[in-house]
């Protein structure tokens, strides 16, 4: 199976909600890419992709009314942030042969990046 067919199969294996999540994460990823590729022209030093590829998700399990992180806000704006968000993200991280996303806990114990 060619790489492109494999990628397409992986995409089609996702359900509508998971595709919406991927769309939002992809958009954030591409925005970060555009921003960091322009670092030189803004007179800044380039940051390694290993660092900027991590997109802040936001605080998890904190008190109600805590301000939302970047991805949390984007999911909320798209109207898909709910109690099932954790499960959906978990599925995206463990989905079959090609895991679509990875998560890690940041140094601040309650924040996922």
């Amino acid at each position: 199976m060619a790489a492109q067919d494999k990628a397409l199969a992986a995409w089609q294996a996702l359900n509508e909600r998971q595709q919406t999540y991927m769309r939002i994460i992809y958009r954030a990823d591409q925005e970060a890419e555009r921003w960091h590729k322009g670092a030189w022209s803004r007179g800044e030093r380039a940051v390694s992709a290993a660092e900027w590829r991590w997109i802040e998700y936001g605080p998890v399990g904190t008190f109600k009314g805590a301000s939302l992180g970047e991805l949390q806000q984007a999911l909320a704006d798209a109207g898909v942030r709910s109690q099932g968000t954790g499960s959906t993200l978990k599925v995206l991280q463990t989905t079959t042969s090609s895991s679509c996303a990875r998560g890690r806990r940041s140094s601040r114990s309650t924040t996922w990046t």
Partner: peptide
Amino acid sequence: MKLTPQGRAACRAGGLD
């Protein structure tokens, strides 16, 4: 969160490009 290269490829294959 971080997209894996496979995840990114899946997004592009899905037309998010």
